[in-house]
């Protein structure tokens, strides 16, 4: 494996991602173990430019069907790569919705058949971590990584580039989900995570003593549903949701979430003797989370990697990077698994 990794020193990988809301494709160039995104297309990002953070995702496999070929076509053109130069195709096979996953995997199979290529089946969650390998970042193992997205909150131990062990996870709501739901409770429109973070800037994070769920528990699991409910109770107790009150609620909730996320990540890094910390997933865009992890990582003298924002949320470049590490197979060996775990 190692031999192969070192000597296979130039590769072009086409990544395809349709596991959830985004239709995405990317071409990643691998050169001497370094990863460069040559083109990275995420369909919903076209709208994000219009009104940042205000996009209501479309949950429609039908949308994927309509968009997948144009997205791939555009990506290949922008990367200036012709199909014959693609070395392999990487596609998300789980976790995600069956109907959405099938669009990506069937497209990958069809292309692999027509172009005579091999396919690498990719775990979406592992791929979120591989986003940290993009653009010349050097990774030192063992790594303790926190995946924080809309659907997941997981602590992962990586002993090398292909070894993943889940050491903790949310037992109810994911962190991003809690941000969105609390945002709704204080009257922001869906998905309110980014808007809540903005609102929190002007608030007092000590105004409400929200719980830090599972902070002292003797494991690396998280829980956010109780925090959500605590905010609900605070809202109901207040006679009127004034603007300063909303800011304080937002700031206090954000602080509580970030406190637990960071404390447990840092504790895991110490316990598992990690040489590096990583952040991944959409909530990694949260500035308080980034700043706090950065500060705490410094305190324990561990380097920290956070992907560029465009590689934090769902994208296909991270799928392509994952495609470098896993074994390519024939198109007829590809099976999707909605419940795939790390």
């Amino acid at each position: 494996m190692l031999f192969w990794l070192i000597y296979n020193d130039f590769m072009l990988i086409l990544g395809i991602e349709t596991s959830c809301d985004e239709t995405a494709a990317a071409v990643v160039e691998v050169k001497k173990g370094r990863f460069l995104s040559r083109a990275n297309t995420v369909l919903s990002q076209i709208n994000i430019h219009k009104k940042y953070g205000g996009v209501v995702p479309e949950i429609a496999a039908r949308k994927h069907v309509k968009n997948i070929i144009p997205v791939i076509d555009q990506t290949l053109k922008r990367a200036r790569v012709s199909p014959k130069n693609i070395d392999r195709i990487a596609v998300t096979t789980g976790p995600g919705l069956m109907t959405s996953l099938l669009v990506g995997s069937q497209t990958a199979k069809t292309l692999a058949f027509a172009w005579n290529k091999k396919i690498v089946p990719v775990n979406h969650l592992k791929a979120h971590l591989y986003a940290n390998f993009l653009h010349n970042k050097k990774v030192i193992f063992p790594v303790v990584a926190l995946i924080v997205s809309g659907g997941h909150t997981e602590l992962i131990l990586m002993r090398n580039a292909t070894s993943f062990k889940k050491i903790g996870q949310t037992i109810d709501d994911a962190a991003g989900e809690a941000f969105d739901k609390v945002a709704q409770l204080i009257g922001l429109s869906y998905p309110g995570g980014p808007a809540l973070a903005k609102l929190a800037l002007g608030g007092d994070a000590t105004a409400f003593a929200f719980p830090r769920p599972m902070l002292d528990a003797d494991n690396f699991d998280f829980s956010f549903s109780g925090l959500k409910t605590a905010v609900r109770y605070a809202v109901e107790k207040s006679p009127r949701l004034t603007s300063p009150l909303k800011k304080n609620l937002a700031a206090s909730f954000q602080q509580a979430s970030v406190d637990v996320l960071v404390a447990k990540t840092v504790r895991a890094a110490t316990v598992y003797k990690a040489k590096m910390l990583m952040l991944a997933g959409g909530v990694a865009a949260n500035v308080l989370l980034r700043d706090t992890v950065t500060r705490e990582a410094k305190k324990i003298k561990r380097p920290l990697l956070i992907p560029d924002f465009i590689f934090c949320t769902d994208n296909a470049a991270m799928i392509a990077v994952a495609g470098y590490f896993e074994k390519p197979v024939d198109w007829d060996k590809i099976i999707v698994d909605p419940n795939l775990e790390i």
Binding site: C20, Q169, I171, D173
Partner: peptide, 13 residues
């Protein structure tokens, strides 16, 4: 398995 909220994933089996 741990039963988590399917709000984002929409459906867990």
């Amino acid at each position: 398995r741990v039963v988590k909220s399917p709000s984002f994933t929409l459906m867990n089996i």
